[in-house]
Amino acid sequence: MKKDIILAGVGGQGILSIAAVIGIAAVESGRYLKQAEVHGMSQRGGAVESHLRISDKPVHSDLIPEGECDMILSVEPMEALRHLPFLAAEGWIVTSSNPFRNIEDYPVDEQIFAEIRKVRNHILLDAEKIAGEVGSRRVSNMVMLGAASVHLDLPAKKLEEAMETLFGRKGEDVVRMNIAALQAGRDAGKRV
């Protein structure tokens, strides 16, 4: 088993939390892991990404080679497209459809969606709407993780346990809302 995932988004959208949850779940499932993050200047509202590699065998490179990525998991639709050169022919794009417009020349939504639909395996979700229904738009990132988890070889239970580990100190309510977002995302992902 080997899964190479690129997490994408805009600084502040919570992709490092997604990375942390998958990372903990992978290690707790006895898998090898490497996960490269972006820190520093780009975190200030710029494009950010994380390369996440999970395998049964030791992982060499911290970065995923071009054309080898199994999944681009994005919390922002244009950011999903930025990493297309990395996606394998049979790879998945799982992305939120909610644009984050903090630049003047941001393209028209429909153009972005059309490009995403060109990739055979794609999930395009209104994550903010689903997150709002379970309690808060802030957990949109976990909705996307839920949708992606349908195509990740990690048990949902392990992901939920990882959320408890990660968010436990923030209180039970936070854990519960994140888990609810994960489940709602998972249900939505299955329907696609």
């Binding site: 975190q43 710029g46 071009e66 050169p85 630049i103 020349d105």
Partner: peptide
């Protein structure tokens, strides 16, 4: 594979 042209730079702010 190239990045679609509609994808714009998003510098930090």
């Amino acid at each position: 594979v190239t990045v679609p042209e509609i994808v714009k730079d998003r510098p930090p702010a």
